[in-house]
Design a protein around this nucleic acid. Structure first.
Length: 255
DNA sequence: ATGGTGGCCCGGCCA
């Protein structure tokens, strides 16, 4: 099974590139973040035509997450509960090919003294509770998406440039550690020890071409799935060219 | 260079 995750920064703006990318990589499961669409605007039919079932959770201008699957898509859940999503349309889950898949978009946080940073930590806490209540890490579970957290200093272009910044702070990294301690593994790190491999680059100031990025898009998998992992690739070619997202897709092949 | 770009949708927010 090939599973991928990609923050597309508006599916409306990115649809031509997403369709090209699907044709090239042919993922069995593709998780998307920042669709920036309401459910009614999500292009269900275009994906159905390619053989993908889909589940989307979005309310319009901000956020929005989705799962596409050509290996079945059962028991979708949108948000953390069936109540109105006060957490902002940042998680959708479904069972695809026997794997419980979660597509997540963790709040950015903005800065350590910002209300949004407290919201980010609260959201991560809610995610941990949600997983405990709805999943068993002894089964096949994937939690993937834009975490807006660089797991360690290898995952930023210059650690000294991030002193006092969000994405690298200890509370955020501890919140990620809670998920790992629960029974998930960062699959990229299973296959790669090197630093300087990134999944996001700011649009501004030529950051992509200068190599100033971060690895904040992660695929976390339970032990049984990690044992099946054949490799992880970040497709930085998807960050090149005309009208790219500021994120690159992360691709995992499972035996 | 304390800026820069790009998406939402048209003034300002968000990343």
């Amino acid at each position: 099974m090939r599973l991928a995750t990609w923050n597309v920064n508006s599916l409306t703006a990115r649809m031509p590139r997403v369709l090209d990318w699907i044709a090239e990589f042919v993922p069995d499961v593709l998780c998307l973040q920042e669709t920036k669409q309401a459910d009614g605007a999500f292009p269900v039919g275009a994906f159905t035509d390619l053989g993908y079932a889909s589940a989307h959770h979005g309310d319009g201008r901000w956020n929005g997450v989705a799962i596409l699957s050509r290996v079945g898509l059962d028991h979708p859940t949108r948000g953390f509960s069936s109540a109105e999503d006060e957490y902002g349309c940042r998680i959708v889950a479904a069972t695809c090919g026997g794997v419980r898949v979660h597509s997540v978009y963790v709040p950015n946080g903005r800065s350590l003294d910002h209300e949004q940073y407290r919201f980010k930590l609260a959201w991560l806490g809610r995610l941990a509770t949600f997983l405990e209540e709805t999943c068993d890490p002894g089964q096949d579970v994937v939690v993937c998406g834009d975490f807006n957290i660089a797991p360690d200093d290898r995952d930023v272009w210059d650690p000294s440039a991030f002193t006092g910044a969000t994405h690298v702070s200890e509370p955020e990294r501890r919140a990620l550690g809670v998920l790992l301690d629960w029974g998930l593994e960062d699959l990229f790190r299973r296959h790669h020890e090197e630093g300087g491999v990134f999944s996001w680059w700011d649009y501004r100031a030529g950051d992509f071409h200068e190599g100033r990025g971060m690895r904040i898009d992660l695929v976390l998998a339970s032990r049984s799935l990690a044992a099946r992992s054949q490799g992880v690739v970040i497709d930085r070619n998807a960050r090149k060219g005309k009208k790219p997202s500021d994120h690159a897709p992360v691709v995992v092949d499972l035996a």
